[in-house]
């Protein structure tokens, strides 16, 4: 069965930040909320690599496991979504998330967090597809239009791949074979092979 995943090919990522602005543009994500970001490791050194990262829509997602109000859920495409109506802004998902995906607006000057916001794989949320409520809370639902997350669709060097895990894994493997090297799919082990699962 299809299982949606993200894969960032660090050999191709040039830190152009298209994924970041495309996401912001598509979902009108406000200043300070970064559903997706590009992290550069070893900045300025020969080993430098940039990796675009957002919610990886983990298997056995730890955020879902720790949410005290069960506001996060995973659908049968593997996409991890959440309900902003239920979220209480406790921050547990942020502690559990291996990729720093959950983001919080500030709810008050008392330091508390507002409703969690994160990458939806451009699949909206629990509201009715294409409804105004869905758009306002979660952004566009591209998946329901048969489109992939915009970040991957616009990636300038096709470094960021999204879609069926087997297919994007295949695209990546072909590249590795052709160029003869690859530094591995960053985050896949953590995201898709869970705690101690799947070997």
């Amino acid at each position: 069965m299809a299982r949606m995943k993200f894969l960032c090919d660090a050999e191709r990522c040039i830190e152009c930040n298209a994924c970041v602005t495309a996401c912001k543009n598509e979902h009108e994500v406000p200043w300070g909320i970064n559903r997706r970001r590009v992290v550069t490791i070893d900045d300025g050194l020969p080993s430098e690599r940039s990796i675009s990262i957002a919610c990886m829509h983990c298997t056995d997602a730890p955020c879902i496991a720790v949410c005290p109000v069960d506001c996060i859920y995973q659908n049968d495409n593997g996409i991890v979504l959440h309900s902003k109506d239920l979220c209480i802004g406790c921050g547990y998902c942020f502690y559990a998330c291996p990729f720093g995906a959950p983001q919080y607006p500030q709810a008050s000057n008392f330091g508390s967090r507002g409703k969690m916001d994160k990458c939806t794989f451009c699949a909206g949320g629990p509201e009715e597809n294409h409804s105004e409520a869905e758009y306002r809370k979660y952004g566009r639902n591209r998946v329901a239009e048969g489109k992939l997350p915009l970040c991957a669709e616009v990636c300038s060097t096709r470094a960021l791949l999204a879609g069926d895990g087997e297919m994007i894994g295949g695209i990546y493997e072909e590249r590795v074979i052709r160029r003869g090297y690859g530094s591995g799919a960053w985050g896949w082990q953590t995201a898709y092979y869970g705690r101690n699962l799947g070997g």
Binding site: W31, G32, Q103, P105, Q106, R113, G114, K115, Y135, G139
Partner: peptide, 22 residues
């Protein structure tokens, strides 16, 4: 104090304007 990274954001849920009608 509240200018903390996690908190340095606007109002996440307010998105205004028309919604696309395909």
């Amino acid at each position: 104090v509240s200018a903390l990274p996690l908190a340095r954001v606007g109002r996440a849920e307010v998105r205004e304007g028309p919604v696309e009608q395909p």
